[in-house]
Amino acid sequence: MKIKLCLCTLAIISWASVAHAKVNIVASTPEIGALAQEIGKDKVEVLSIAKPTEDPHFVDAKPGFIVKLNKADMLIEAGMQLEIGWLPNLVLSARNPRILVGKAGYLLASNAISPLEIPDPSMDRSMGDVHPMGNPHYMLDPLNGKIVATRICEQLCQIDAANGNYYKENLVDFTKRLETKLSEWQKMLEPFRGLKVVSYHKTFSYFAKRFNLNVVGTLEPKPGIPPSPTHINNLIPMMNNEGVKLVIIEPFRERKTPEFVASHTGAKLVILPIMVWGIKGVDDYIALFDYNIHQIVSALRG
């Protein structure tokens, strides 16, 4: 009887391990998950924790993710304290030694990029919820995407050496496509070099830097603090003086304030997804920029 039971368990275990022959990757945000998918293609199973449409600073640490992390071969964290409010407890409960800091199965994506807006040491929370390590929305710069993809490839090759060449080929292919697209995007936005824009949150700093846009203000008076009437009353004349042509917001923001500001300044309001799948049709990392750049260009031309 006991032997039978043992055999049964063994059979189940071996079946389970065969069924999960793909490398299980959990990414904290969808755009990082999308990169992992580009590199791993059909050899990996990718799950992104944050929903593409929601504010990535506030994600529910649903217990279901504990199970996913428990079975993960690799965890990719965006870092720079973006996930500080929800990921640590999940990782702790997941009790998975493969994805702990220092292991090949753990990748802190922000480690490889050069951060923007690292706050002055004299800054504190009276300035709003400032991220002490810098602005965490770095994936909106395609070149950072390239860097992160390279890092994903490196660590994926460590975990799954057998498919190393496959991953490397995918990386080369992806990088090539991204670079071609990047010069295309830059050409498209070249006529608008130095264009002054206003965003809701400091989400588009990296994007603006790469494509030579100039973010002159935010609808939030301070990071994480919702727009106040006083701030908006100061912002509108400033925008009129500066000749701001665009107001950029993420899909999950309320529309009332941005619309009000746009109508009082003559600026166009564009809603740009910041994560892959944030809007229908945006299914991969390159499509995200394709969509956003076309939105901007058509808003400015129209």
Binding site: E54, F58, D60, F252, R253
Partner: peptide
């Protein structure tokens, strides 16, 4: 039991 909008802003 929890419901949270897919378009949650600030939770």
């Amino acid at each position: 039991w929890k419901w949270k909008s897919s378009y949650a802003s600030g939770g």
